[in-house]
Simulated assay, not measured.
Amino acid sequence: MLSPDSTSPAAALPFTMGPALLFCPADRPERFGKAADRADAVILDLEDAVAPGDKSAARQAIFEQVRDGGLEPGRTIVRVNPVGTPEFAQDIELLAKTPYRTVMLAKAEGAEQLRALAEYQVIALCETAAGVVNAPAIAAEPNVVGLMWGAEDLLASLGGLSSRNDDGGYRAVALHSRSAVLLAAKAAGKEAIDSVYVNIPDLEGLAEESRDAVASGFGAKACIHPKQVAVVREAYAPAPEAVAHATELLAAASAAGTGVFQFKGQMIDGPILKHAQSVLLRAGQLAL
């Protein structure tokens, strides 16, 4: 679950989300409400999902949607174009006229870029070589609430051809970047979001990757199609037996009152207890 950093200028704005985020092209306003209803948070995309000639119409669609009632600000993210582009300036001009204060910055590459969004909570999308290398400095910025990595844009920035091998698994450089962004986010106390799974019909592959994401520590995964949402949610939802085990384990830890103790033949220490707390947090039975 992603939440504002207490030192962020936008920290007073409530924003939380569950594990499944759904991208929605900003030039398709007829999909806004459906996307918001189906996912834990919707990402209105002004960048890659919108053709260059349609970006003005996309901004107008968001403005008109807000005028007609809008989406819930606490579950709405707007992906803006990269800092330094004419489109970015127009995106920010639009956002000032809306209640949306959580943005995803496309192709974030340096900490200084985040200062152009000081009034917003930012999910920095590290999807270039520079963005991945500079992820620790980006994550440290006070208005950054999370990092996401992007596989295909990353490989394009490297001059590569594909982020995945023929068997569907990530290439070594993509795995390194995924881990680097996760580590940078968590080291700064921020959330980490796993990249999209572009093979839409392959729900089994999505499920496997989502299970790995939650086991690795990613707090959410982005989706590009509504039918992916349920798969991600299922991967993040702990099994009933896992919840029961975690509950029993934490109760035993409280009763033991010591740093290390035995539980069902296993030696238990701090990291194991944190794993149990993570299970209950995902099950909604433990507060942050």
Rank of each mutant, 00 (worst) to 15 (best):
E47C: 08
E47Q: 13
E47H: 12
D48K: 02
A49Q: 07
V50C: 11
P52E: 09
P52M: 14
D54Q: 15
K55V: 06
S56W: 01
A57H: 05
A57F: 02
A58N: 10
A58T: 02
R59T: 06
Q60C: 07
Q60R: 15
A61K: 12
A61D: 03
A61E: 04
F63M: 09
F63S: 12
F63R: 15
Q65C: 05
Q65F: 15
L71W: 05
G74V: 00
G74W: 00
R75C: 07
R75K: 15
R75Q: 12
V78L: 09
V80M: 04
V80A: 05
N81D: 09
P82A: 12
P82Y: 06
P82L: 08
G84E: 09
G84N: 07
T85N: 06
T85R: 03
T85P: 13
P86K: 05
P86A: 03
P86W: 06
F88V: 10
F88R: 01
A89P: 03
A89H: 11
Q90K: 14
D91P: 12
I92Q: 10
I92P: 00
E93R: 07
E93K: 13
E93T: 11
L94N: 01
L95I: 10
L95T: 02
A96S: 04
T98W: 06
T98K: 02
T98Y: 08
T98A: 04
Y100A: 12
R101A: 05
V103A: 07
V103H: 05
M104F: 02
M104Q: 14
M104L: 13
A106D: 10
K107L: 10
A108D: 11
E109N: 06
